[in-house]
Amino acid sequence: MAILKFLFITICILWLIKMIARVLLPIAFQKMMTKAQNQANQRYQQQHNQNPDGRIKVDYMPPKEKNRGDQAGDFVEYEEIKTP
């Protein structure tokens, strides 16, 4: 008799959990989806507002080399002399 009572109580508890889950899980998932959408919209707005249209943001500019003229030295003209 104790086994039947245990099975009946177990089945009733599982049935109650199933009914509660059918009601509460969709509500919980809807809240999670709304929260995720709001966070995505906030990130999009922050990224969109950082760089206004038509403007370019440069994070790094390499140092400019100083132009000192010819790096190899001065050019000297010469004539080739042929010996007999």
Score class of each variant (00 low, 15 high):
Asn38Thr: 12
Pro26Gly: 04
Lys35Trp: 04
Ile27Ser: 08
Phe8Asp: 12
Arg55Glu: 14
Glu65Arg: 06
Gln46Ser: 09
Glu79Arg: 15
Ile81Lys: 05
Phe29Asn: 09
Pro84Arg: 09
Phe75Leu: 11
Gln39Pro: 00
Ile11Tyr: 02
Gly73His: 05
Gln50Thr: 15
Phe75Tyr: 15
Pro52Leu: 14
Met1Asp: 14
Asn38Ala: 08
Tyr44Trp: 12
Ala2Asp: 12
Ala28Leu: 08
Leu25Asp: 05
Gln37Val: 04
Gln50Ala: 15
Ile20Asp: 02
Asn41Trp: 06
Pro84Met: 14
Ala72Asn: 09
Arg43Glu: 10
Thr83Ala: 08
Arg43Met: 12
Phe29Leu: 13
Leu4Trp: 03
Lys82Phe: 01
Ile56Lys: 08
His48Val: 06
Tyr78Lys: 07
Pro26Leu: 06
Glu79Leu: 12
Ala28Arg: 03
Ala40Ile: 11
Thr83Trp: 08
Gln39Phe: 00
Thr10Glu: 03
Phe75Arg: 09
Met61Arg: 09
Ile56His: 04
Gln37Tyr: 02
Met61Phe: 10
Lys82Asn: 10
Asp70Leu: 05
Trp15Gln: 10
Arg22Trp: 03
Ile13Met: 08
Gln39Asp: 02
Ile20Arg: 10
Ile20Cys: 11
Tyr60Asp: 08
Pro26Met: 12
Ile20Asn: 06
Ala28Cys: 01
Gln30Arg: 05
Val23Asn: 04
Gly69Leu: 04
Lys57Val: 11
Ile17Tyr: 00
Asn67Trp: 03
Ile11Lys: 03
Lys82Glu: 10
Gln39Cys: 01
Asp53Leu: 10
Val76Trp: 04
Asn67Phe: 02
Phe6Trp: 11
Asp74Gly: 03
Asn49Ile: 03
Ile20Thr: 11
Glu77Asn: 10
Ile13Leu: 15
Met32Asp: 06
Asp70Ala: 06
Pro63Leu: 13
Ala36Leu: 06
Lys18Asp: 07
Arg22Gly: 13
Tyr44Ile: 09
Ile9Asn: 14
Thr83Cys: 07
Asn49Pro: 00
Thr10Leu: 14
Phe6Ala: 09
Ile11Trp: 02
Lys35Gln: 12
Lys57Ser: 07
Ala28Glu: 04
Trp15Cys: 13
Glu65Trp: 00
Gln47Glu: 11
Leu24Gln: 05
Gln71His: 08
Ile11Met: 04
Ile13His: 01
Ala28Phe: 07
Asn49Glu: 12
Cys12Ile: 15
Glu65Ile: 09
Lys57Cys: 10
Thr10Met: 08
Gly73Thr: 05
Arg55Ser: 11
Arg43Thr: 05
Asp74Met: 12
Met19Arg: 06
Ile27Met: 03
Gln46Lys: 15
Pro26Lys: 02
Glu65Lys: 04
Arg43Gly: 01
Glu77Thr: 07
His48Ala: 12
Arg68Ala: 04
Asn49Gln: 13
Ile17Lys: 05
Gln45Val: 05
Leu25Val: 13
Leu25Trp: 01
Met61Ser: 13
Arg55Met: 08
Val58Arg: 02
Asn67Ala: 12
Glu65Gln: 07
